[in-house]
C-alpha cells in the first residue's frame, strides 16, 4: 500500500474520532443541564466516585508528600536550604501532584469501572432497553456520572492536598527532626489561595475527562466480552493521556502571566 495513503487514512481516522467525541461531549453536557434530572442516580454516583475513591487517593497523596519531603531534603541540605522544604512540598502538592496523582488514580479506578459497566449494558442490550422504557440513556446513565465526577474530584483533591502536606510534615518532623510549629508556619507563609484554587479547577477538568472517557468508550463498545475489555483499556489510557496534556495546558493558562 502507498505510504502516503496510510498517513492520509490515519489522519482522517483521527479527525473522525475527534468529531465523534466532540458531538458526544456536547450531547452529554446538554443533558446535564436540561431537566429531567435523575437525582437518585446522581447521588449514587457521588458515593461511588467520592467515597470509594477516598482511601486510594488519600494513600497516594500521603506517600507522594512523604517522598517529596525526603527527596527535597537530600537535595536542599547540600546548600543549607532545608527551610524551603515546607514551601516546596505545599506548592508541588496543591498545584501539580495533588490533582494529577488523584486524577490518574481515579482514572484507573472510576474510568475503568464506568467503561466496564456501560460496556456490559451496551452488549447485553440494557441501553436499548432503557430507550424502550422511555428513558434517555444520556440523562439516566451519562449525566449523573459527569456531574458527580466533575464536582467530586475537586473535593477529593482538597482532601488529598491536606493529606499530602501532612505526609511531608510527618517525614520532616519525625524523620528529619524539624520543628513542628516552624514547619506549619513556613507552609502557610508563601502559600496563596490561587495555588489551591488552580489545583481545584484542574481537578474539575480531570473529573470531567475521566467520566467522559469512561462513558464514551463504554457507551460505544461493540462485540461481547472482548469489546468491553477493549473499552475499559481505552477509557483508562485515553483519560490518563488527556489528563497529562490538559494539565500542561491549564498550567500554562493559570501561571502564564506570573
Amino acid at each position: 500500500m502507498n505510504p502516503l495513503a496510510i498517513i492520509g487514512r490515519s489522519f482522517l481516522d483521527f479527525l473522525t474520532v475527534v468529531g465523534v467525541l466532540a458531538r458526544f461531549s456536547i450531547r452529554s453536557v446538554k443533558h446535564c443541564v436540561i431537566p429531567p434530572f435523575y437525582l437518585r442516580q446522581t447521588a449514587k454516583q457521588f458515593i461511588d466516585i467520592g467515597d470509594y475513591s477516598l482511601p486510594v487517593v488519600g494513600l497516594t497523596a500521603l506517600f507522594t508528600g512523604m517522598v517529596l519531603a525526603l527527596q527535597s531534603h537530600t537535595g536542599f541540605s547540600r546548600f543549607d536550604a532545608e527551610s524551603a522544604i515546607p514551601t516546596v512540598v505545599v506548592l508541588s502538592i496543591t498545584r501539580e501532584l495533588g490533582p494529577v496523582m488523584a486524577g490518574l488514580m481515579v482514572a484507573g479506578r472510576i474510568g475503568a469501572a464506568i467503561a466496564a459497566e456501560l460496556g456490559t449494558m451496551r452488549v447485553t442490550e440494557q441501553i436499548d432497553a432503557l430507550t424502550t422504557l422511555s428513558t434517555n440513556p444520556f440523562k439516566y446513565l451519562i449525566a449523573p456520572r459527569l456531574i458527580a465526577g466533575t464536582l467530586m474530584l475537586p473535593i477529593l483533591v482538597l482532601v488529598s492536598d491536606v493529606i499530602g502536606v501532612f505526609g511531608g510534615f510527618f517525614v520532616c518532623v519525625y524523620e528529619l527532626q524539624f520543628n513542628a510549629a516552624n514547619y506549619i508556619s513556613q507552609t502557610w507563609e508563601f502559600l496563596e489561595s490561587s495555588d489551591v484554587t488552580s489545583g481545584l479547577w484542574k481537578a474539575a477538568a480531570f473529573g470531567f475527562i475521566i467520566t467522559l472517557m469512561g462513558c464514551y468508550h463504554g457507551f460505544n463498545s461493540r462485540g461481547g466480552a472482548q469489546g468491553v475489555g477493549k473499552a475499559t483499556t481505552n477509557a483508562v489510557v485515553s483519560a490518563s493521556i488527556l489528563i497529562l496534556v490538559v494539565n500542561y495546558l491549564l498550567t500554562g493558562l493559570f501561571f502564564a502571566g506570573k
Binding site: M121, T124, E125, Q126, D128, A129, T131, T132, S134
Partner: peptide
C-alpha cells in the same frame, strides 16, 4: 414515538 412501544429483548436485558 418510543413511548408507544414495549420490547422483550433476546437476552432479557434486565437491569442487573
Amino acid at each position: 414515538h418510543q413511548a408507544k412501544f414495549g420490547m422483550l429483548f433476546q437476552g432479557s436485558a434486565l437491569f442487573d
